[in-house]
Design a protein around this nucleic acid. Structure first.
Lengths: 228, 228
DNA sequence: ATAATAAATGTAAAAAATACATTTATTATA
DNA sequence: TATAATAAATGTATTTTTTACATTTATTAT
């Protein structure tokens, strides 16, 4: 490998913009680099793609390394390839955005690995062009939320309608009317009411629901609009 | 360059899925390869990305080489990176989809360069994974047509409402009601009626319109829905 | 028993989408 | 110069969806 000049051949990297949702806020997963270059600086979760794996295989591999998670919602965002984007290598980065459920187990796993969650309002300087990637990814999820039920990827398997509303308010950055929101989400007919309540949010408690993937898949075939 | 094994380092290519619209049909630009490997086979317009250019610079360069056109609507589709996608190189391809106006000048230019337009219904076998790219690009433009006015990129600068309708019918693969289509498109308030008629389509002739990019840009800021 | 809290609910009005058939401007031809 | 032929242009009633808005309910803590 060291026979070649690092600026004379292409390196391919994958960077993951990993979003979570916790306490009513959308969060981004970053870590403090342990090694040079940029030791100590904040970075997205990423790695070089190996010659014997595809970009998507690489992204699955590093997501597992950093979070312990498999079968995560992850989609390609885009390619960052400016000649001077990385002073060390001639490296193009293929970015992936991922949505994960934050629970206590995940929180622990992530802390063990030296990663952490940042509130997406007020992301500090990250290395290279990673801030740009985050901005682009946020724009993308805002767009995609209009025709895909991505909200459900970020919530626990069981969630309440007020929780779902708070999440959509965070994605769209505006308040929604609770009566209209409830009416709309129920009319989509893709959530199932459970016979349990979550009482952490109020004395009355709110009914828990779960997402109906089967029904959603069926509807999707017919060109379904998820706008809320 | 030849010091390195072709399977031992990454090559980066860009492939362009270039769509046009002619005689009521959506067309794809392909060419017959003049050199090995795959001499004589049909291929998307593409090239290796040079070490000193970005992917987007490369795509602009090759689009110019093949069509003579600059300032074309072109967006990244996605990255194709299976380890065995290209038997010759360890090559990842970043694809771009482009929409261009087919006119007689372009037709000539393209023929001179040995490229040609294929009807998108019934694309023959293309090299490598290019068929997959075309399918993905078609899916993408169908989706994107719902919230961006991409139709206008494919039509001549001056077009009639029936022409626009035919184009959307080709994109969505379904018939639209002419009264409702006209009502909807006019309500969007982004096309300007001209005092000329196009009489190639009928004895009565249809009024020509042009797209109002300024108005569209303004509306876009407010989160505009282009669904037709 | 009462206060406090967030969850749950309904309705009327406005806007948008849909379904549907006739008239109009023009050219070619009888 | 009247007529036939052609695609363009037009209107309305109905249904569906979206919006705006205030009160009651279930539960816990005091």
């Amino acid at each position: 490998m060291d026979l070649y000049d690092k600026k004379d051949k292409f390196y391919v990297a994958v960077d993951c913009i990993i979003f979570g949702f916790d306490k009513g806020k959308i969060k981004l997963l970053v870590f403090n680099r342990k090694i040079d270059p940029y030791k100590g600086a904040l970075s997205l979760v990423g790695s070089f793609v190996r010659i014997g794996e595809s970009v998507s295989e690489a992204s699955i591999r590093i997501l597992k390394e950093f979070t312990g998670l498999e079968n995560v919602y992850m989609k390609e965002l885009s390619t960052y390839s400016s000649v001077d984007r990385d002073p060390g290598y001639r490296c193009i980065s293929v970015t992936q955005y991922a949505l994960i459920r934050i629970d206590d187990k995940i929180k622990m796993l992530i802390e063990e690995r030296g990663a952490k969650w940042l509130d997406i309002t007020g992301i500090p300087k990250l290395i290279l062009d990673h801030n740009e990637m985050v901005v682009d990814a946020l724009e993308r999820i805002q767009k995609i939320a209009r025709y895909e039920p991505i909200g459900f990827e970020l919530l626990p398997k069981k969630f309440t309608i007020p929780q779902l509303q708070t999440l959509y308010e965070a994605i769209y950055r505006r308040k929604l009317d609770p009566r209209n929101f409830r009416k709309k989400i129920l009319s989509l007919d893709v959530i199932i009411k459970l016979h349990e309540k979550d009482k952490t949010g109020s004395k009355k408690g709110a009914f828990l629901y779960k997402f109906d993937y089967k029904k959603y898949t069926k509807l999707q075939e017919w060109g379904y609009n998820f706008e809320i």
